[in-house]
Design a binder for these strands. Structure first.
Lengths: 140, 140
DNA sequence: TCCATTACTTGAGTCAATCAAGGATCATCC
DNA sequence: GGATGATCCTTGATTGACTCAAGTAATGGA
């Protein structure tokens, strides 16, 4: 179902536009990941490893259970995209880092996921600033 | 992980704002569904039954395999939220419709999913129009 | 040293999603 | 009117995300 998170009713034009944006964004993300044979979750985790970090930090940032990260990282590791090494300072912890292949795949993902770039690119610099301001205000 | 679909890098303020919007939107959708003990997919399908319709129409609209809809509708049916009756005009097809309970749950979902409403509500009518126009332009 | 806490893993279970295959019905064409 | 192919949906198998409960190992403070 790709991205089923569509709203039930959109009572205003602006709400409908927000929905369309989210829908297209999510679908584009999923498509870009699929082009690299990654699940969205795998692409997401891989993208958050610009610096090596622990499992717990990933779980907290993504708002999910640590055991979920364990699984996703294990699959990324099996694909040769990340390494998981013991933290010398705290041997309970594991530090996850991208391998060179992981970095390459990550960059290819960033290239494939053109949606946000393209969408913003349709706006003039002034319009981009307006959009940013409006979204920030809407987000509260 | 709720909604892992975060971008790898956001090269502009506007892209970052788009990401934040999508992230918060998706999480709010999931939270609202969870409050009613529904999965996002279940809430989504339930919300698309303002009129009774066939399985195939749902699958096409949501861009997924028909067998996926079969499963989701079966769970909704087991929960007493929808009925699945043979189409008198085409006995291959099944017409899915909300039960009264399903309608009630759906309305409670619409109430619980306040994000889009709240976000838009932070903007003046003029700003809402601007946002709509900018998003439409960005969507191409 | 003892003990609570922290960091992560394991195991069990649910759900979403896809694919392949199959049954039933429809629609058409001769 | 009967065969043929397409359509609508289901079933079964498999993968992955996600959560929860329970467990292991290491830390750090009393």
């Amino acid at each position: 179902m790709a991205v089923p998170n569509r709203p039930v009713t959109t009572s205003s034009e602006a709400e409908a536009a927000l929905f369309d944006l989210v829908d297209v964004y999510d679908r584009a993300y999923e498509t870009a990941a699929a082009e690299l044979s990654l699940s969205p979750a795998q692409a997401c985790v891989l993208g958050r490893l610009d610096e090596r970090r622990g499992m717990g930090a990933l779980a907290e940032e993504l708002g999910c259970d640590a055991s979920n990260i364990t699984q996703i990282v294990a699959r990324l590791e099996a694909l040769g995209l990340v390494t998981r090494e013991p933290d010398p300072r705290d041997r309970r912890a594991r530090l996850v880092a991208r391998t060179p292949l992981g970095s390459e795949i990550n960059e290819r993902f960033a290239t494939a996921f053109t949606f946000a770039r393209t969408a913003v690119g349709r706006l003039s610099p002034d319009e981009q600033d307006q959009l940013t301001a409006l979204l920030r205000k809407a987000l509260g």
